[in-house]
Amino acid sequence: MKDEEIIICRCEDITLKEIKDAIHKGYKDIESLRKYLQLSAGPCQGKTCIPLTEKILAQELKKRIDEIAMPTTRPPETPVPFGIFSKAKK
């Protein structure tokens, strides 16, 4: 399969080719890639695409996978409606 046919971020429809191109444009860490491509901004909250992007970065930059800094994990763990939090507030 060609790079432009492989979807890495399913929520935001971002391909392997777009990620590789961005890395070679100078977006060489996950945070910068996320902010440039809007990668991991969808309902899965990056659970699918971030680990994949970590591997792609390691391959493209010829680094070990543990040398790739991971983004901060932010709450909520899964999408939760406003109304739920509102009811929790006494």
């Binding site: 309902p43 932010r74 999408p79 406003f82 509102s86």
Partner: peptide, 15 residues
Amino acid sequence: ISVLPIISSVNIMKQ
């Protein structure tokens, strides 16, 4: 929700 009630069922994604 007190200002924009229709938002009650909308999901919060991230803080």
